[in-house]
């Protein structure tokens, strides 16, 4: 109301203020793309595993050993995520398996959009896959926040990293289905408590399936291969 004519006009801020209820996830765009990825994975006939760990936990080495064991029986594809270089994809290609390298140029995780592009590139190298591994950027924190459309998420923890890591970095352990403790052949040389590494992860996520692996020595590989086979059988 103004003082001159006693009109009922209110101030601009009162009349034009609006409160909009949104209630939308800031991950919504990523999650929509992840659902689109799921369709691409289904079109390729593939079970998809998202592998998360710190750098150097043994993701690529486990993949190399897996390829050696499954060569000729299953069709495998790999999408590699790193900040720089083609080195991991080159290691996979050297085994005769189609691989796409995504270099994020600094980003600390793969998101569903990057996987969508990577998946189209992988499908240019082969139409059908039994299993596709996504090797995420080496980082135990950020990749856990981004759903890529995967069927199974696995977290790897190597013995040299220490058995206190599940409690310190809970996100990846809470959101994973499978937990591989790697480099168990180094147990005699490190102060690593297998009990702590298992117990604290299970406290975070009682559903976690746990494997103990020393891939280059072949230790635990049959249980790992059985897990993959069950996953593929469950999908078909």
């Amino acid at each position: 109301m103004c003082d001159s004519c006693h009109c009922t006009e209110t101030t601009k801020s009162d009349s034009e203020k609006k409160i909009i209820e949104v209630h939308e996830s800031l991950f919504a765009a990523n999650n929509e793309k992840a659902l689109a990825n799921k369709k691409l994975f289904a079109a390729a006939g593939a079970v998809v595993i998202n592998m998360i760990s710190s750098p150097g936990a043994g993701k690529t080495t486990l993949l190399e050993q897996t390829i050696d064991h499954l060569a000729g029986t299953l069709s495998i594809g790999v999408i590699e995520g790193d900040i720089e270089t083609e080195r991991d994809a080159d290691r996979i290609r050297a085994k005769g398996v189609p691989a796409v390298q995504i270099t994020t140029g600094g980003a600390c995780h793969l998101d569903a959009g990057l996987i969508h592009t990577g998946m189209h590139k992988l499908m240019a190298q082969g139409n059908k896959f039994d299993i596709i591994f996504i090797e995420n950027v080496g980082n135990l924190v950020c990749p856990a926040s981004f759903y890529l459309g995967e069927d199974l998420r696995m977290v790897l923890l190597s013995v040299p990293e220490g058995s206190d890591k599940p409690a310190k970095y809970p996100g990846a352990f809470k959101t994973s289905d499978l937990y591989a403790i790697t480099k168990t052949d180094l147990l005699p040389y490190f102060d690593f408590s297998m009990e702590e590494a298992r117990k604290e992860a299970l406290q975070l996520n009682p559903e976690l399936q746990i494997l103990e692996l020393a891939a280059p020595k072949g230790t635990g590989l049959s249980a790992w291969i059985d897990t993959l086979q069950n996953l593929i059988n469950g999908k078909n």
Binding site: K12, S13, E16, K17, K18, I19, I20, E21, V22, H23, E24, S25, L26, F27
Partner: peptide, 9 residues
Amino acid sequence: LILAQVEME
């Protein structure tokens, strides 16, 4: 992480 509400004018 959810955008719940926005006030604007």
